[in-house]
Structures are given as structure tokens and as C-alpha cells.
Design a protein around this nucleic acid. Structure first.
Lengths: 140, 140
DNA sequence: CGTATTTAGTTTCAAATGTAACTATCTTGC
DNA sequence: GCAAGATAGTTACATTTGAAACTAAATACG
């Protein structure tokens, strides 16, 4: 038995490589982590959102979201204010700095994805999407 | 921009799901971690091997290998002896317990992989292998 | 109302992991 | 042979992460 031929291992190794490349990309260009990137993207399309709502949108853990929001606030990329109707909740939204950041981050992310996908043929891209969809269905 | 449509994210999320499922599978059935599983599989096909050689075989970090070997020795799945020609090195091999364990683990791993793959069509399996190969080539 | 239960978010704790420093040994080049 | 550098493996430290406990506030319900 060769574990390198083992499909779950191959998928995991592949994903790890992509994730590390992506993490380094964001770190180098924008000095943000993948968690920060993800929360920023959500805040970009959903302004004035609570941590709970972010958790509902993502598969991210609430502890991780809480910590990520704290870091983003320290970096002045978001503003936080108390929820007018629920004193437990905090409303988060991008600051001006955060908005400018996202105006750089979003096209860059699209470009990064393109740089990967353009190395596949049209058919391969289609197969990739189908396989991802199929696996998601299988693993539910 | 919807990060859920972002291919690097989708691959990462998918892989995470598979990895977690696999980790739980090994933990539940054999009470071993994925690191332990990986080292055991290598020791199974390469008896009398040093930590360095394991590192050369895998993408695993040497610290992680060192710790994993320590745990495996504590669980009596491997035997360690000093290298006759290099006092720095340690030779590792499966104990009798380790060998019996692997006689259960290997068929189980094959079965686990099958249970995933059998839900794909023959063509999809082929496409999956090709895409993995292509990505590995792209990401080098 | 007032007590019990949920819920939003944070903090605390433990586990996993990688980097860098370290020990001990080996190899190289003079 | 022996000093300088390389190598096998471990240890120490910092970082990341998730689970569980916790705080404070909201809601449910008698």
C-alpha cells in the first residue's frame, strides 16, 4: 500500500499546497490572514452584520470569528458599534480603510483564481466544478 | 464577490471535510491520528527505516515525525534501536502489535477510499485523477 | 413579574504544529 | 588527526485552533 496513491491523502496534500500559497499571497500583499480575508469579504457584501450572522454565512467557528473581528478592529479595517436592539450583539462594518483595502483585495483574488484556472482547459474547469459539487453532495 | 464560489476556498473546504472524516474514522476504529497512520503505513512497506528516511518519503516535518514516532513507541506499535553505523540515527520498525494493527488498518483504508470513489462514475474517477495530477504539475 | 432557558460573544484551557535553537555525532578538508 | 561544517534527532517557544466554560443580555413561560 502506497499512501501517496491514496485519494484522500492526495486531495488533502493538494489543498494544503493551495492554501499555503494563498495564505502567503495575502500575507505578502495585504498583510492579512485567510480568516481576516474571509471575514472582510463577507463584510464587503454584507455591511452592518453581527458575528453570529457571519457564522451563519460561513463554516467558521464563532471563536475564530470573534478573534478575527478583534484583529480587524485593531487594524482599523472595521468599525464596531453596539446593536440598537440587542445589547449582547455587536454590529460590524468596514471602515473607510477597510473599504479601500477591499477595492484592492477583490480584483486581486479574482486574478489569483484566474491564474490557477487559466492553466486548465475549459473542459477541465468544468470537470473540476462538477467534481467539487459531487463531492459536496456525497459528503453531506 | 462570493467567497463560496471561489475555487481555492471550495477545494480547501472540501479537503477539510474529507480530512476530518478520515481523522475521525481512524480515531474511532484504531485510536490513531492521521500522522500516526501515515508513519505506520510507511513503516509497513519500509521496515527498518530512520526518521530522516521517513521525512524523505513524506512531506512531513521532521519534528512531527519525531513526535509521532515517540507516540508510536509508547503505544508499543514500533520498536526502536540504534543504528549500527550511525550513533545519531534511530532505526524504527513495526512491532508484532504494529504489524497486526496494520493488517487491520490497510484493508480498512482501501475500503474507506472505495466507499468514497464508488460514489463517482468511472469517468469521474478518471477525471479526478487527471485533475489532481494536473494541479500537482501546475503548483510545482 | 420573576425564574428558567437561550443566545451573542469572550475567555480559558488544552492540543497540534512549525520555527529556531540545541545536543550529539558524523564527515570533510587541510 | 583535528577543526569546521553538515546532519539526525530532540527540545523549547510561539502560534493557531477548537471545545468548554463563562458573562451578560434576551426571550419564554409559568
Amino acid at each position: 500500500m502506497d499512501y501517496k496513491q491514496f485519494i484522500p491523502y492526495q486531495i488533502s496534500a493538494l489543498s494544503l499546497k493551495i492554501s499555503k500559497g494563498l495564505a502567503k499571497h495575502y500575507r505578502d500583499r495585504f498583510d492579512i490572514s485567510v480568516s481576516e480575508w474571509r471575514v472582510l469579504v463577507i463584510l464587503n457584501s454584507h455591511p452592518n452584520i453581527t458575528a453570529k450572522a457571519i457564522a451563519d454565512h460561513t463554516q467558521m467557528d464563532k471563536v475564530r470569528i470573534s478573534r478575527t473581528l478583534k484583529i480587524l478592529a485593531q487594524k482599523f479595517y472595521i468599525k464596531q458599534m453596539s446593536h440598537p436592539e440587542d445589547a449582547r450583539a455587536v454590529i460590524n462594518r468596514l471602515s473607510d480603510d477597510g473599504q479601500s483595502l477591499m477595492q484592492a483585495v477583490i480584483p486581486d483574488a479574482v486574478k489569483y483564481e484566474q491564474s490557477l484556472l487559466k492553466q486548465l482547459t475549459t473542459i477541465e474547469r468544468q470537470q473540476l466544478r462538477q467534481l467539487i459539487a459531487k463531492f459536496n453532495q456525497i459528503l453531506d
